[in-house]
Design a binder for these strands. Structure first.
Lengths: 155, 155
DNA sequence: ACAAATAATTGACTTTTTCAACGGTCCGTG
DNA sequence: CACGGACCGTTGAAAAAGTCAATTATTTGT
């Protein structure tokens, strides 16, 4: 007797057996979608989204990124960075300083308020991340990060 | 002498030392962005994008997904699935069949043309994926997939 | 048989993405 | 030194993607 029935086989997650479910691009996209949604939900309480959180993180980290560097790092169009920084600057979380070494460029620096907010937001972000990684051992967590780095920064 | 110079230190990828670069959500987002861009570029030759490729893949795989299942699996709003399927159906790559078991639902099935196109597109997709994974051993490739599955399908 | 729930669709609306153009600044070459 | 070409940030417009509520047809449970 064939295992192929006419009825839909208990079908909650039949699709996980499809070839697509083995596709790394798909897994990446889906994992990212879920992660992003969770992160945005958690960051909303601080008036941030994943994007603005990332910008604030880099500003608060004293790497003094230019907007162009931000754009390349976050894979955004430079014009999107403008909007993002506008938002943070309006809230006085961040400052644009024209780079003395290149007066075309703006270097981003977090204000004290920005650092304080970031510290709080980072807690939320960490909590979410731990929640998502509940099924992953710390060792595998690090392993996953390393493998993702290979994809995220192909040199 | 302090190592903090006034000049921007060789700065190609200084940002990789920031805390953000250790954030799994960020790595996921960036890896996904690069992967997605590469996939879209490769699929363009077949008139597909990652989204339509995914839908076609599931249709061609004979899992007979309903549109709702597609929406949940691909993390899309049901209305986006409508548009996606419209596009593929107009090109006769895919057919909507009302599910005899539930006449509200449409089951997606690929046409012969759809299967043929998918076979070709799959080759492109595979090639891209191999390119992106050049720095990853096959064993790590599988490991990465497994870890991503944990994030993509938290049960 | 009826009420509540569900699948697909539509339309309106917001957000995100993508591009081209522009002013200001830097750099290398003549 | 000056000039042309490249580069940074900004603006604005257009296209694409995402969100949401309402509607019809159908199913399910009572």
């Amino acid at each position: 007797m064939s295992p192929i029935g006419r009825t839909r086989p208990t079908g909650r997650d039949r699709l996980r057996d499809s070839v697509l479910a083995e596709d790394l691009s798909f897994l990446l996209a889906r994992a990212n979608a879920l992660t992003l949604a969770a992160a945005n939900a958690a960051l909303a309480e601080h008036g941030l989204k994943a994007r603005s959180y990332s910008v604030l993180a880099l500003a608060a980290d004293d790497v003094r990124p230019t907007q162009r560097e931000l754009a390349e790092f976050l894979r955004l169009d430079p014009s999107q960075v403008v909007a993002l920084v506008d938002g943070l600057e309006k809230r006085q979380l961040v400052e644009r300083r024209t780079d003395p070494a290149d007066r075309r460029a703006n270097v981003l620096v977090a204000t004290d308020a920005g650092r304080a907010l970031f510290a709080r937001a980072q807690e939320s972000a960490r909590a979410v991340e731990l929640g998502l990684l509940a099924a992953v051992t710390p060792a595998d967590h690090e392993r996953l990060a390393q493998l993702l780095r290979l994809l995220a920064f192909p040199d």
